[in-house]
Design a protein around this nucleic acid. Structure first.
Lengths: 233, 233
DNA sequence: GTCTATAAACAGATAGAC
DNA sequence: GTCTATCTGTTTATAGAC
């Protein structure tokens, strides 16, 4: 039996029972597996109860272990939370890169399609959306963590920034990195804001709206840029 | 001595000591004042510790009262939090209405100016921004509260929706309420997303960016609408 | 490595004095 | 109305058995 990790943080087992030389897990592997299961349980409990509201007992129980096991893998609740924060950040980065890779391979696709896909991904991962809010609050309340968190968020924005940059390159000579960076911030802020609104009021925040907003935004940017170039030349 | 409430939820005393018939507060007035002070303290403590992380003792202490006083004014921590949620929502609604009223009286002002002003207001009220995130998480975790919260958010969006609608009326014959509503959602989502980003990474999220984004957005909407009308007519 | 048992601190909430 | 004292349950974290 072997545990693999999905991009979204879930797990599945290799059910290939015919595997010839199935062996016991080494101590290190077993411990790693326990850590992983604890982190997965922590994700659920922190998402539904918040950092302060979550109890280590519930996390351990949900993972199928005792409190003692938790404390032998993490120094405490805080470290568990911070490790989760780090692990989920890299998951998201991989996911985003993949999503935008798909986008690059279907370059004719309108912004609407990308927008709708992003929203539908967010609709499914309700746990992650709540966790993000929890991470943000933690960062705001712990200045020493804030910079690390901000750096991760910036990093996650990079693939988006590149996609936008290459989109703009089509229309003009050079690659305007500063513009791409600013637009990426706007696009991701818009995305996060809409996902949160939609979460509490889905009827009033249709999934297509994010795509519409992207179309408006990029139409406006191109028009504005054209106008600016027209004046300068 | 009389307590008045600022739009932003703060308080100030009338220092007019010469007031001739200064009288003792009635029991009801004293109780109302206690409630108000407790709510104000709760705002600070909930913002910095979160709902689960805040203790009623700290709230009572910060307000200058004992735990007993808190329990004689609220049934418990939960009611205190919900009352705060309701009171701060109406404060924000009044504030927004005022801000957009100013906007209406200076109709030539570009979107950039409005955007920058909104961001600078948010920069000052860091407590409120954290509270909003806390309210959102609470709503997400308590389905019975969610609809009430969503309704308050919708209500707060109304003045913005009207401003946008009247802006669009200039360009075309009728008032397109549906478009205005959708754009208002986009604008407020964008705002909230940028404020959160800016809170943890101010260097990378310049205050002007929100204004730029609004300009891009409205330029794009008008171009898109023009194109749509051109095709239909 | 993980479990059970427990220590020590703290939380929300109540009762009765004033 | 508000305060002090207290009850009860829960929490994080640790110690020692296996």
């Amino acid at each position: 039996m072997h545990w693999n990790r999905y991009l979204n943080g879930g797990y599945y087992m290799d059910m290939d029972a015919d595997q010839p030389q199935q062996r016991r897990l080494t101590r290190a592997e077993a411990k790693a597996r326990t850590r992983t299961l604890l982190l997965d349980a922590a994700s659920q409990v922190f998402a539904s109860q918040g950092f302060a509201g979550a109890s280590v007992e519930e996390i351990a129980e949900r993972a199928g272990f005792s409190i003692g096991a938790l404390y032998s893998n993490f120094t405490g609740k805080e470290e568990l939370f911070l490790e989760l924060m780090a692990s989920r950040a890299s998951d998201r980065a991989a996911e985003t890169t993949q999503l935008l890779q798909d986008e690059r391979e279907a370059p004719g696709r309108p912004w609407q399609a990308l927008g709708q896909q992003m929203i539908s991904v967010a609709d499914k991962n309700t746990e992650l959306v709540a966790l993000q809010a929890e991470f943000w609050l933690y960062a705001v309340r712990h200045p020493n963590v804030m910079e690390t968190f901000a750096a991760r968020v910036r990093q996650r924005r990079e693939p988006l920034e590149q996609l936008i940059g290459s989109e703009f390159s089509k229309d003009r000579g050079g690659y305007d990195g500063d513009l791409a960076s600013r637009v990426a911030i706007v696009v991701s802020a818009l995305f996060q804001g809409m996902v949160r609104q939609r979460r509490i009021d889905p009827d009033n925040v249709p999934a297509e709206l994010y795509g519409d907003a992207l179309r408006w935004l990029f139409t406006g940017i191109k028009a504005t840029e054209r106008a600016a170039r027209g004046e300068n030349q």
